Simulated scan of single mutants.
Amino acid sequence: MELLVLLLLLGAAASPGGGSGPHVLRYFYTGVSEPGPGLPQFITVGYVDDQLFMDYDSERRSAEPRAEWMARSEGPQYWQRETQNLQGEQATFPPNLNTLRGRYNQSGGFHTLQVMYGCERREDGSTGGFFQYGYDGRDYISFDKDHETWVAADDAAQVSKRKWEADRSMAQRYRIYLEQECIEWLGKYVEYGKETLQRREPPRVQVSDRPSRDGLTTLSCRVHGFYPRNVAVVWLKKGVAMPQETNRRDVLPSGDGTYQILATIEIDPSSETDYTCCVEHPSLAEDLRVPWAPKSNVMLIVGVVIGVLVLVAAIAGAVVFLRKKNSGYKAAAAHEGSASSGSDQGSNTCVKA
């Protein structure tokens, strides 16, 4: 059987949302035609949700744990079995690379075979599975589990499709693995790492704005500090979602075990200012909404407050001044009266001063 592989962007997959939430188990195989320093001929990594839990490469030739919860949960027999399986997979990549070079009329150069396969347990308890294959970063062929058929991405992949579908047992084996064995292992791994895989940290949201082109304004919604990584962010206009206008960046790690994302929208502030950033996350009982307050309104409010404070301060100062002034007049009058009567108190007071 040809073993071909697809590289999946890690940010595209769902991650955990708690014990009953979604979880996904994914394996990535990558083989290259021209290995070099830091780039082994064959690499395998395994992820549960967004956490790397094992890896293997052709230079080390052994499967090893990469998560503490995995290292303490499985013993030497598990890792020996995984090592033997991956050594067998590694052996299939060089001949498969040669086969594909021939199908695409390539005589040499740097080429890659990639595979991504695994299974998922969704929020509603249903399950799914996937086998996707690729060559040189492009889709090659994928497995339609429900119909036990293969979907070819181009004419070259039609050759593999015909060959693999001629052996009906192959599709049946793939389906059984995805629906049974893979789901069972996913459940075990989630239980092993429940301290981290099932934790929830709610997002924090910051809304800001900046001038952009032609008098427009760009609103930014920075969502950060959340876990797991699956999150939905959209700008609302008068309470209505604006998914097409929302520019949503990739979810990125924050470096502290949590994630962050930025969502922006370009608006005309002269025509409408009722915009709100809406965030949905497994840690939240309901969506989190943070409205945008235009700077002009903010400055107006600040100006009014400052004006009121200045007025109060001025009134208070005037009152104090008048009180001191009145007290001064009385003291002067008393002093003049004492001086005209030849009082010793007046002379003594002046000497002491």
Rank of each mutant, 00 (worst) to 15 (best):
E2S: 12
L3H: 09
L3M: 09
L9R: 13
L10A: 13
G11K: 10
A12G: 09
P16T: 12
G17V: 06
G18R: 03
S20P: 04
Y29N: 10
E34P: 05
G36S: 06
L39Y: 06
Y47R: 11
D55M: 11
D57Q: 04
R60Q: 10
R60T: 13
E64K: 15
R72Y: 02
E74V: 11
W79G: 04
E82V: 08
T83K: 00
Q84Y: 06
Q87D: 11
F93H: 07
R101T: 01
N105T: 10
G108V: 03
F110L: 10
V115W: 10
M116F: 11
Y117T: 07
G125H: 01
Q132W: 03
D136Y: 03
I141N: 03
F143T: 02
H147E: 13
H147T: 15
E148S: 12
V151M: 11
A152Y: 01
A157D: 02
Q158I: 06
S160L: 13
K161T: 02
K163M: 15
E165N: 01
S169E: 12
S169D: 11
A171V: 05
Y174F: 12
I176F: 11
Y177A: 03
Q180K: 10
I183R: 06
E184L: 12
K188C: 08
V190R: 06
Y192V: 00
V205Q: 00
Q206K: 13
V207M: 07
D209G: 07
S212W: 08
D214G: 02
L216R: 14
S220F: 10
S220Y: 08
F226L: 03
V231M: 00
V233A: 02
W235Q: 03
K238R: 15
G239I: 02
Q244F: 08
T246C: 01
T246M: 06
N247F: 12
N247C: 07
D250C: 09
P253W: 03
P253C: 02
D256W: 05
T258M: 11
Q260L: 15
A263W: 05
E272D: 05
E272Y: 06
S283M: 02
V290R: 09
P291S: 02
I301G: 08
G303N: 02
V305F: 10
V310P: 03
V312H: 03
A314E: 04
A314C: 07
A318S: 11
R323I: 09
K325Q: 14
N326L: 15
A334I: 09
A339G: 03
S340T: 15
D344M: 12
N348I: 13
T349H: 12
